[in-house]
Nucleic acid binder design. Structure first.
Lengths: 227, 227
DNA sequence: CACCGAACATGATCTATGTCAAGGAGTTCC
DNA sequence: GGAACTCCTTGACATAGATCATGTTCGGTG
């Protein structure tokens, strides 16, 4: 099964296993492809599975009590989704939607349980992944409570995986602006104003809707670390 | 070693091991006692250990860039501290201080690594603990970005382990008010005002500095879930 | 290629909460 | 049991950012 094999071997939490072990793990796994815009997971869904991302990007959001959608995170290669349902037995109450065409490894919970018992390394790597996520949420939390919106935006832009185009650092926003606003704990209006301000002061340049070039990295870093 | 034994057997992540296994784990573990006010962990400390709480209470805080102390969480029985340093190799950059006299099991990292390999169940329970923490931080984050301070306070009070005194639900604040303010992403002044308002509207009653009786649970829940 | 709708920008206004300042109350420690 | 220090409360004020409303741009679609 070359496809399953590929799926397992590409994902960080299964690296460190021998090829033979990977093949055995592959028997438990189902490779799944979802198209952009499709819903992967919806709240209260009784059948719950563990997803391990392999390519593409998903967004995880939470319908708050007041009806607002709160973006919790975006997940990319190597990230894990749905571990809480497996670990604690609670039903998932997040909404997961594909931002791009995505591929992932899917495990049923019963299988996963046995898997972790047989391959402690996998558990260790999962722990590492969760620990990273925890650190990243705590960073975001600290950022939201202790800095203003401009600083959060700057930090967000600096965190984004960037590329160099024509010698200038460029980032491609993975989310629509109103979604970024939600993620950063603000509103689209404020985000728009602050981006405009950063642009006016020559720190960044906006091209089209999702394309940002960073003209002055140091300046942006200064904004991200306020006094 | 009955003391070590006790330490290990009292902690959730080691339950599920047989008595014999617990005894073997106990060899790795060092029981530690810290007095109220003592520092358990400080940022950048090069020797890092894993703590598993057993009794008492610690507070974990983070010195933000602007010098403000941000309270990240309080940890109580069964909680784990310092796993990130172990899992990722990064130095800890949180400050951990004992709020009460506390007892905990301490592992050195090298030992822990072997432990997780030998007892996959321990890893699984650690995963569960981390997953709970993640969920709780994500809840806090959502609360901070999508509700006002009154709602956060109400939710906080409802979350606190409460007792019944004279037939009335009573909570004992585990932190000083200025620390609670930090945890909830606000200031002592605002917290004070909101508590006063809740008190004025007859929902709660304040006694002394840390003692709160809840007169109207439904009312408090209504405040916690705003429209 | 022109249309259409969603996403975005901008302006005017309002309000919750932060900030600064000063006085009061609760603990703690001798 | 009282002094002394924190912690907490209250007040007056300033302001970042939310909200509401309207106009504009982009990018996909027929």
């Amino acid at each position: 099964m070359p496809v399953d094999d590929l799926c397992v071997s590409r994902v960080p939490i299964f690296q460190g296993l021998t090829r033979e072990e990977q093949l055995r793990v592959a028997e438990f796994v189902r490779p799944v492809h979802v198209a952009k815009g499709e819903t992967v997971y919806s709240p209260g869904q009784s059948v719950s599975r563990l997803l391990v991302m392999h390519s593409g990007q998903l967004k995880v959001s939470h319908a708050a009590a007041n009806g607002q959608e709160q973006i919790l995170r975006t997940v990319t290669d190597g990230d894990v989704v749905g571990e809480r349902a497996f670990l604690t037995g609670h039903l998932p109450n997040d909404l997961v939607v594909a931002l791009e065409d995505s591929r992932m490894c899917v495990f049923d919970h019963t299988d996963l349980s046995a898997l972790l018992r047989d391959y402690p390394d996998v558990g260790l790597r999962m722990l590492r992944t969760l620990s990273d996520r925890l650190a990243s949420v705590e960073r975001l939390l600290a950022a939201i409570t202790s800095s203003d919106v401009s600083a959060r935006i700057a930090a967000y832009l600096l965190d984004l995986p960037g590329s160099i185009r024509d010698g200038v650092p460029t980032v491609w926003l993975p989310l629509a602006k109103y979604e970024i606003a939600s993620y950063l704990g603000t509103t689209p209006e404020t985000l728009s104003r602050r981006l405009a301000a950063l642009s006016a002061s020559g720190v960044i340049e906006l091209h089209g809707r999702r394309d940002v070039t960073i003209l002055d990295i140091d300046g942006l870093e200064r904004v991200a670390t306020p006094r």
